[in-house]
Amino acid sequence: MTSVKKKLADNQPVIGTFGKFSCPTAVEILGYLGFDFVILDMEHSSLDYSQIEHLIQAADAAGISTVVRVPGIEESPILRVLDTGSQGIQAPGVDSPEAARKVVEAACYQPLGSRGLSYSTRAARYTLKDKGQHLLACEQEQLVVVQIESKEGMDNIEEIAQVAGIDVLFLGPADLSNSLGIPGQTNHPLVQAALKRLCDVAKRYGKTAGTFVANREQAARALAAGVRYLAYDNDVSFFVQGSRTVLAEVKSLLKEQEAI
């Protein structure tokens, strides 16, 4: 399996989605369909660490990269999900360069950070992986994503982008719209201007631009702006949309039969 970080280094756009279901089968299906990555969501779901481990195991089997959106920027959740074998972490609410450095400190080994080192983890194959290879793999394959989702974060975007160890600047359009006083208006010109600025800053400082989209129009606009780390909706929405379509089709058939 080629890591998302390697694909991005080769200038390939990557397509993922948020995963909120605790069922490993859902993650497997996303992998078999050909998604590049799934963001396992510990911020806006009830997923716990044990479930995260099972979902990562399913992802590894299906050849899809995993990124875990941790519930905050504290050291403990970042360390725990990386030790579980996630290929990356996505930290919400990064509003300042100090917060960005805190994320890097927790996620990266020396010299970039001060992540606690243990070899009896799933990430290190329970001591079976060569120690040097484990450290090298973390350096070369581990993705660190910070979410910029407030006016303060956008005001500090230049400084955040200069923090070593950050790979992706990810615009959170929903929370940004809330911060700007236009809650839910993710297509508003102010939000779109922020996305364009984030993409420009990311390019200037050698970072990847990312964002969340919920439809084809938003995806096209994001890609045209320079986004290469694209999170398209989530598994819950996919299930609802598919189920609604099937139900509508069957109800339509029933009405046609009743009319005969």
Rank of each mutant, 00 (worst) to 15 (best):
P77M: 13
E74R: 08
I89S: 01
L135A: 09
A26E: 10
V68P: 03
G85P: 03
A61M: 07
Y119M: 13
Q87M: 14
K129S: 09
A58K: 06
V81T: 13
I39R: 00
D48R: 01
S114H: 13
T66N: 02
Q51Y: 00
Y109N: 04
P111K: 05
G113K: 05
L47A: 04
S50E: 14
A99W: 13
E43T: 06
I73R: 05
L112N: 07
E74S: 14
Q87S: 07
F35D: 04
Q133C: 08
D60G: 01
P24N: 06
H134G: 03
Y119C: 02
Y126H: 05
Y49S: 13
I89W: 00
G113N: 10
K131V: 14
V81F: 09
E28K: 12
G93I: 13
E43I: 11
G85L: 07
G116F: 08
E53V: 15
I56E: 08
V38C: 08
G63S: 03
C108G: 06
A107L: 06
E105P: 01
G132Q: 07
E43F: 12
K129H: 10
A124G: 05
G132I: 08
G132Y: 03
S65N: 13
V38A: 10
A123H: 05
L33I: 15
R122F: 07
T121Q: 03
A123R: 00
L40V: 14
A123G: 08
G132N: 12
E74W: 09
Y126V: 02
G116V: 15
I89L: 02
I52A: 12
V103N: 00
V94Q: 05
Q133H: 10
A124E: 00
S76T: 14
G34R: 03
E98D: 14
S114Q: 14
L136P: 00
G113A: 10
